[in-house]
Every structure is written in C-alpha cells, then in structure tokens.
C-alpha cells in the first residue's frame, strides 16, 4: 500500500513549496478589510509553517531532521530558490539547519489570555526565512520543471522514503506553457512508497466562495481552475482524515486543491499537506 513509509531521520519527509511571486500577488488577499497583500500574508503563513515544523521536530535540546524543506519562488521569467540569508540558493534544507539559520528573528505582538478573562499583548519570537516579493508574470511550468528535477534527485537518494510533497500556491494561471502536462511529469516521479504528491492552492483576491478539496471539476468556474484541479493529486487517506478533523469537506477521492482560498484555508491546507500519513515521527 502506498503512503505508508515511516518518516524518520534516516528516511525524512520532503516538503517543497512553490510560491507564485508574480505582480498580482501585490493585490489584497481575500475579503480582508486590512488590505494585506497576498504576498505579505503568504510570507507570514509560510514563515509560521516553517516555525511550526521546527517546533514539531525539536527534541529536548536538539532538533531531529525529520523533514527537509524547500521554497521556490516563481516570477518574471524564472523560478528560483526563495529562502534568504545563509540559505540563499538552496533548494532543500534539513529542518535543523533551517531552525538555526533564519534570515532574522523578529519580535511580534501576540494577543493572549491574561488569566483574568481579558486579553494581553505578549511579545513572541518570530523567525523569518522568507520575505514577500512580487514582479512580472507567472512561470508556473518552470517551477514544476524545477520541482521535478529536485524530487527526482530526492527519490533516488531516498528510494524507500515517503514521497515528496509539493505544495504550489498561486493566484493566477501559468503564463509559460501546459500546466497539466508539467504536473503529470512531476507526479510520475516517486519512491517505492508512492508517487510525488502535488497539492495546489489558488488564492482569492475577493471574498467570493471557495471550492475546497473537490472530487470533480464541476463547480470550478473556468479553464484555469480546472487545469489546477487536473494538476492536483488525490489526497492520501490520512490527509482526508486530517481535513475532516479541521472541518473541511473532504471525501475519499478529494484532490489536494482549493480554489479561491481565504487565509484560513491556506493555513488549514498547509497543515493537511504537511501531515503526510498515519505515521509517528521516529
């Protein structure tokens, strides 16, 4: 049965995020009144996700390399590794190295319970690995090609491991070719434990309704949305269970795709995508 491999330090999990950095990422995200740009909101969500992955892998006074994580940004005519600072130019980085080499550690204010029925401001450390950026077109096919190259190497090096999970986050359509064909090439790569999983999130610029984890393309409004659906892998049973726990309408054949996602959808979707299977971390 596929997607059963244990995630361990010997056979770590691999998460690769493909981030749309085209011009339209400058627009406000969803129906939010604070007018936060999609690129800014996404950077916050992604930094928080890497932060959470570091905490998950922290073990007493060290950190176990259960995961290797990469972030590729695509904009203008190309696709580049998007982690900053000492990790610049790196496609995949062990989580322990990520934890020790953030771009910077900011202090942010978090609202928390004051223990007396009120709310108080608490200063928390917020490591940043990835800054928002936007420019030019949407070379999504270039990103999928680069992802294919990276996961081919990964799977050769980890033939028995859980297959890599690629999460593509975009607000638009590919401007450089046939998205579905490139996605098929990417998901044709795999380990003994199954094919690479490609999950797609389409970000909304409005407060319009979203389509979460669909089993078919019937409710999708246009060809671009349908292409993203076609390009998305079917969720593993464990991902379906996790989606249901989070209150999302997941079914056995749900694709890893959200159309017109609001910020909370993105957070939930990333949670689902980074909990690959019914496995303990060893």
């Amino acid at each position: 049965m596929a997607y059963q491999a244990e995630i361990s330090r010997k056979n770590p999990g691999c998460f690769l995020f493909l981030i749309d950095q085209s011009e339209s990422m400058e627009d406000p995200f969803g129906g939010g009144e604070d007018g936060r740009r999609k690129a800014e909101e996404l950077a916050t969500i992604l930094n928080k996700l890497i932060h959470n992955l570091c905490i998950r892998c922290a073990k007493s006074d060290s950190i176990y390399d259960y995961f290797h994580v990469g972030v590729l940004g695509y904009s203008e005519e190309s696709c580049q590794p998007a982690l900053g600072g000492e990790l610049s130019g790196r496609s995949l980085v062990p989580i322990g190295e990520l934890a020790s080499k953030p771009l910077r550690i900011e202090e942010r204010i978090k609202k928390s319970d004051d223990g007396a029925g009120g709310v108080m401001d608490q200063t928390v450390k917020f490591p940043v690995w990835f800054d928002p950026y936007w420019k030019g077109g949407t070379p999504m096919c270039a990103a999928l090609k680069e992802a294919t190259r990276i996961v081919e190497t990964w799977c050769q090096e980890h033939p028995k491991g859980f297959p890599p999970i690629i999460i593509n986050i975009t607000d638009g359509e590919a401007t450089d070719g046939d998205l579905v064909a490139e996605a098929r090439k990417l998901t044709a790569v795999g380990s003994d434990d199954g094919s690479v999983l490609l999950l797609n999130i389409h970000l909304s610029s409005t407060a319009g309704p979203s389509v979460e984890l669909p089993t078919n393309a019937n409710k999708l409004p246009d060809q671009h949305a349908k292409q993203l659906f076609e390009a998305s892998s079917t969720l593993t049973p464990f991902m379906v269970a996790r989606a249901k726990e989070l209150g999302m309408p997941a079914a056995e054949n749900s694709r890893g795709f959200i159309f017109n996602a609001q910020p909370l959808h993105v957070i939930h979707f990333l949670d689902i995508g980074t909990r690959p299977a019914n496995v303990h971390l060893r």
Binding site: C54, I55, A58, K59, S60, D61, S62, A99, I105, K125
Partner: peptide
C-alpha cells in the same frame, strides 16, 4: 537555567 536554542525552549514550554 538550561541554555536552549529558540526552538527547544519553545517546545519545552509546551
């Protein structure tokens, strides 16, 4: 009093 890196300290808080 144990010097812990940020991630270990945050995890221990949990």
């Amino acid at each position: 009093g144990r010097p812990l890196p940020w991630f270990a300290s945050e995890k221990a808080e949990q």
